[in-house]
C-alpha cells in the first residue's frame, strides 16, 4: 500500500499536474504584469516577452496615477470590499452561531432558507435591486454596493461557519455560562477565536468576487465619485481606441490590495491557538 502511494511515477505525475495548473492559473496574471511595464508597440509585437531595456516603459503607470481620480477609485474599492467583508463576517458569524447553538422552532428551515442564496445568483434580482436603490435614494452611493455585497456574501458565510461552530466544544460554552459570561461575550471571546481559520477562509472567498465585480458598480454606482477600480479601468477601454498601457497598469495595481488582504487572512489560517482548550 505504502509503496503504491509513494511510487516515483505517481509523485511525478501529481507534481506535473499541479505545476500545469499553477502555470495556467498564473499565466494571465503574469502576462498582465509584464506587459504593464512595456511600451505600446512592444505589447503588441512580443506580448509574452518580459520587458527589456528598450521596451521598458512606465507610461501606463504614469497615465493611471496621473489621472487624479484613480486614487479615489482605489479608495472606493477598498471601502466597499472591507465594509462588506466586515458586515458579512459579523452578521454571518452571528447567524451561524444562532443556528448552531440554539434549539428553536424552525431552526433547520431557517438554515435552509439562509443557505438558499448559495444556489440562486444575486444578479437575477438586479432589476429589483436597482428599483429598490432608486426608491431609497441610494443610487450612486457606496452604501448601495456594500448592502448588495453583504447580501451576496452572507449565505456561504453562514453555511460554512455554522458547520464549524457546531464543532466548538459545548463544555467550553457552558463553562462560560457558569462563569457568568453573556451570550455575546461567549460568542466574541470564546467561539470566534476558535473558528478563526474558518473565518479567514470565508473572508477570502467573500472578498475576491467583491473586489473584482464590474456588474453592480456599473449599474448601481457608476458616478465619477463612486467608481470602483474595476469600473475605473474601463475608462481606458474606448470604443475605438484602447489605452492598453493604462488598462494593464490599472489591473496590475488592482491586484496589490487583494494580495495584501489575502496574506493577512492566510496567516490566520495557519495560526492555531485552539490546542489545549479541550482534552
Amino acid at each position: 500500500m505504502a509503496k503504491a502511494t509513494n511510487s516515483l511515477p505517481r509523485t511525478i505525475a501529481a507534481h506535473a499536474i499541479l505545476l500545469l495548473y499553477t502555470v495556467i492559473a498564473l499565466a494571465p496574471v503574469v502576462v498582465i504584469v509584464i506587459n504593464s511595464f512595456k511600451s505600446r508597440n512592444a505589447i503588441f509585437r512580443t506580448p509574452l516577452a518580459p520587458p527589456t531595456a528598450e521596451t521598458f516603459d512606465l507610461i501606463g503607470y504614469q497615465t493611471v496615477l496621473g489621472q487624479g481620480d484613480f486614487l479615489l477609485y482605489f479608495q472606493n474599492s477598498f471601502i466597499v470590499t472591507v465594509g462588506s467583508l466586515f458586515l458579512v463576517l459579523l452578521f454571518g458569524a452571528m447567524a451561524a452561531f444562532a443556528l448552531a447553538e440554539y434549539r428553536f422552532k424552525g431552526n433547520t428551515l431557517m438554515g435552509l432558507y439562509l443557505a438558499l442564496g448559495i444556489m440562486i445568483p444575486i444578479r437575477l434580482g438586479t432589476v429589483a435591486i436597482l428599483q429598490l436603490m432608486v426608491a431609497s435614494g441610494l443610487v450612486n452611493t457606496l452604501t448601495a454596493l456594500i448592502l448588495v455585497y453583504t447580501a451576496q456574501g452572507l449565505p456561504l458565510c453562514i453555511f460554512i461557519l455554522s458547520e464549524f461552530m457546531k464543532q466548538v466544544s459545548d463544555d467550553l460554552k457552558d463553562a462560560g455560562r457558569i462563569d457568568g459570561l453573556s451570550e455575546y461575550r461567549i460568542f466574541f471571546r470564546l467561539v470566534l477565536p476558535l473558528v478563526r481559520p474558518a473565518m479567514a477562509t470565508v473572508a477570502v472567498f467573500t472578498m475576491i468576487p467583491i473586489w473584482n465585480d464590474l456588474w453592480f458598480p456599473l449599474i448601481l454606482a457608476p458616478s465619477e465619485s463612486t467608481k470602483t477600480i474595476t469600473l475605473g479601468a474601463q475608462l481606458f477601454i474606448g470604443q475605438y481606441v484602447t489605452n492598453w498601457n493604462a488598462v494593464l497598469a490599472a489591473l496590475s495595481l488592482a491586484i496589490l490590495p487583494v494580495l495584501i488582504l489575502y496574506v493577512i487572512f492566510s496567516r490566520q489560517l495557519i495560526r492555531g491557538i485552539t490546542s489545549g482548550a479541550v482534552k
Binding site: L172, D174, A175, G176, I178, R189, P193
Partner: peptide
C-alpha cells in the same frame, strides 16, 4: 435563575479551559 447566579461550579470531563 441563570447558572452563574445559582452558587454552583462545574468541572467538565473535557476540562473546558479558556484557551486564550
Amino acid at each position: 435563575v441563570p447558572p452563574a447566579d445559582r452558587g454552583i461550579a462545574m468541572v467538565f470531563q473535557t476540562y473546558a479551559l479558556y484557551p486564550h
